[in-house]
Design a protein around this nucleic acid. Sequence first.
DNA 1: TAAGCCGGCTAACGCCCGTTAGCAAACGGC
DNA 2: GCCGTTTGCTAACGGGCGTTAGCCGGCTTA
Lengths: 193, 193
Amino acid sequence: MSTTAPLRPRKAQIDRTATALFRARGFAATSMRELATALGLEAGSLYSHIKSKEEILHRVCFGLADSFFAGFAAATQEAAPVAAQLRQAIVAHVRVLTHDSAASAVFLHEWRHLSEPARSEFLALRDRYEGAFRALIARGVAAGELHTPDPAFAALTLLASLNWLPNWYRPEGKLSPDEIAHRLAEQLLSGLV
Amino acid sequence: MSTTAPLRPRKAQIDRTATALFRARGFAATSMRELATALGLEAGSLYSHIKSKEEILHRVCFGLADSFFAGFAAATQEAAPVAAQLRQAIVAHVRVLTHDSAASAVFLHEWRHLSEPARSEFLALRDRYEGAFRALIARGVAAGELHTPDPAFAALTLLASLNWLPNWYRPEGKLSPDEIAHRLAEQLLSGLV
DNA sequence: TAAGCCGGCTAACGCCCGTTAGCAAACGGC
DNA sequence: GCCGTTTGCTAACGGGCGTTAGCCGGCTTA
């Protein structure tokens, strides 16, 4: 858990606005002049607050990675049946996705515009997170609580389903984040028969 | 099924190379000069073959949409149990994804760089395709072959899992496309218990 | 009231972008 | 052997890009 120093409010606002633009148009297709206009500024003024365009992307991507790891750790630290831990991990994952779906979309799609070595570091984190799910499922299989021919495969499809959420989630929708999480868990753990 | 006129070979090669670059770097971050260099040309020469950068993206996105619809139609035209039809539709979808995973990745991620009205037309096609899966699942539920509280939800998670495939599929991997398709179908239809 | 930071401006830098115009070599079919 | 098509080149266009330098008003704190 890298301790993120509290951002000055203006800087946090820049991050939020940039995140929304990055999500809507993509990182490469969003210009600093567009971002400045959206904030009611001139382009040059942004550089009183940030060092570069990529710095924003870096903060968004790694900040969200921290959130995902924190959620997973909290969900799996109790001594509960593995299936219940997996359910909790799904809920935690969905909570992060829904709490800031714009940042999540950026996290999922725009990380490749990070330049090295940040890009490789990011991918390593992503692999580690996926590995944690894989290991959890494997423990469930070993304990006889879960059944799948291939835990890696299962982890892949599970996370893929969850990560599609930012594409259709609307905060004003009928289902609350936790209801969505439980339905997803139900669906993914029980299948369609 | 819009009949795609056969492309002249050079033009087809430009499309293929561009697709690979769009996938690796993203549409907006890929320059015509990069594309030309990858083909051993100068940037201006590209315009003897194509009208614009976006034209390439348009062809890739809509061409793949055609493939998906064709696969789905072939999979569901026989009078088989709905569950079997769904299995076949999954296999068809996976075949398209694996046959050209670069184009699939572009189809899935870069369509938003289409300008209007192409962008809206693309989204309408995508909705229609998703709707076809949803309807198929709903028919399965009505026939008592499938069980899910919410066919729309099920269609969403199913396609999400499948569409993650281009992110990890490697043609030289151990599993053949059809083996992957059957495992995915198994996983998604039966769950983890 | 002075000092110092915070937040913003204007102007400009060098560079890269997509695209066009005009020209020329190579080649296949009649 | 001619003609049209295909394929490519060079040079340049107007414009947008990320970023920097230098400046300044206004707020906070001593």
